[in-house]
C-alpha cells in the first residue's frame, strides 16, 4: 500500500519536475509577485529611495488633489502626498505582519509541540484550550485583547499574532504526530539515538519545514488583519502613514476623493496577494524538490 503510494509519487515526481517541469518554470504571477515583493522590501528598508519626501509634510494649499504628475497617487485633506505615505507605510505593515506571524507561529509551536509530544493529559488540555480559542472568530479574539490592553501598534501586532496561533498549533500538532510515528524516527531509535537527538535531528526539522510555507501565506493575512484593526482605530493612530489608518481617514471623503482610500487599499490587496502567490510557489517547489 505505502509502496504503491511511493511509486505513484515517484511517477508524479519524474513526469512533472523532470520532463515537462511546470513546477520549475516561473509563471507570470510568480514573476510579478517577485517584482512587487522586491518593491515592498526596498520600500520597507529604505523608503526615501522610492519616495524622498516626508510622509507627514503638510501642504494645505495642495489638499485633495486627484492623481497628477506632481502627486502620482494624489494628496489627502492636509495636502500630504499619498504616494509618499503609502511607500513609508510599507514598513509598518510588513513589520506588523511579520512580527504577528512570528508571534503566532512561536506560540503555535509551543502549544503544538506540548500537545504532540507530551502525554494524553497535556494533549487533551491543550486541545480543549485551542477549541475554545477556535470558537471565537480570529478578529474577535484580537478585538478582545485590544479591549483589555488598549489600542496601539504594539497591542494590535500581539493581538493579530495571538489570534493566528491556534491555527498554527493545530497544524503543528497533527504534523508532529505523523512524523513521530514515521519509520525513520523508529530507525533512529534502533540506531541508538537518544530522545533529544531524535527530536532535534528528525522530528522538529520534518515538522517545521512545511510550516515556513504556511507562514509566508500567513503574513499576507496578518497584514490584512493589522490594517483592519487600524481601520477600526485600534492600531496605528491616524496621522501615522499606516495603510489601515490611511484607509480609515479616506473613508470620510470617499465620494469626493476616492484616491485617498483606493491606493492604500490597493497596496493591502497586492501585498496579501503577493504573499499568497509566493507562499504557494515555495510550497510547490518544496513538494517537488
Amino acid at each position: 500500500m505505502s509502496d504503491l503510494e511511493v511509486q505513484a509519487e515517484l511517477a508524479a515526481h519524474s513526469s512533472q519536475s523532470r520532463q515537462a517541469g511546470p513546477a520549475r518554470r516561473l509563471g507570470v504571477a510568480e514573476g510579478a509577485a517577485g517584482v512587487f515583493a522586491l518593491f515592498l522590501l526596498v520600500a520597507a528598508v529604505a523608503p526615501t529611495l522610492l519616495a524622498p519626501g516626508d510622509p507627514l509634510h503638510i501642504d494645505p494649499l495642495s489638499a485633495f488633489q486627484s492623481p497628477n504628475f506632481a502627486h502620482g497617487f494624489g494628496t489627502d485633506e492636509s495636502g500630504r502626498d499619498i504616494y509618499t505615505r503609502v511607500v513609508h507605510g510599507t514598513q509598518y505593515s510588513l513589520v506588523i505582519g511579520a512580527t504577528a506571524t512570528v508571534i503566532g507561529l512561536g506560540l503555535g509551536i509551543v502549544l503544538g509541540t506540548l500537545a504532540g509530544m507530551l502525554g494524553r493529559v497535556v494533549d487533551f488540555t491543550v486541545n480543549r484550550f485551542l477549541e475554545v480559542l477556535f470558537a471565537f472568530p480570529g478578529l474577535l479574539l484580537a478585538l478582545l485583547f485590544i479591549v483589555i490592553f488598549g489600542p496601539g501598534v504594539a497591542t494590535a501586532t500581539i493581538a493579530v499574532g495571538l489570534s493566528t496561533a491556534p491555527g498554527y498549533a493545530r497544524i503543528i500538532r497533527a504534523q508532529l504526530r505523523t512524523v513521530r510515528s514515521a519509520a525513520f524516527v523508529e530507525a533512529a531509535t534502533v540506531l541508538g539515538r537518544t530522545r533529544w537527538q531524535v527530536l532535534l535531528r528528525h522530528i522538529l526539522p520534518n515538522t517545521l519545514a512545511p510550516l515556513f510555507v504556511l507562514a509566508t501565506l500567513g503574513i499576507g493575512q496578518a497584514i490584512v488583519w493589522a490594517a483592519t484593526l487600524s481601520y477600526l482605530g485600534l492600531g496605528a493612530e491616524p496621522p501615522t502613514a499606516e495603510w489601515g489608518a490611511m484607509l480609515s481617514a479616506g473613508r470620510t471623503y470617499i465620494t469626493s476623493a476616492w484616491w485617498m482610500s483606493f491606493f492604500p487599499g490597493l497596496f493591502i490587496v497586492l501585498t496579501a496577494v503577493t504573499a499568497t502567490v509566493l507562499g504557494r510557489s515555495i510550497d510547490r517547489r518544496m513538494r517537488h524538490a
Binding site: S2, D3, V6, F184, A188, R201, H202, N206, A209
Partner: peptide, 11 residues
C-alpha cells in the same frame, strides 16, 4: 525494514 524509503529521513 520492508519500506526502506520510509526508514530514511526524507531531508
Amino acid at each position: 525494514y520492508q519500506d526502506a524509503l520510509g526508514s530514511f529521513d526524507p531531508r
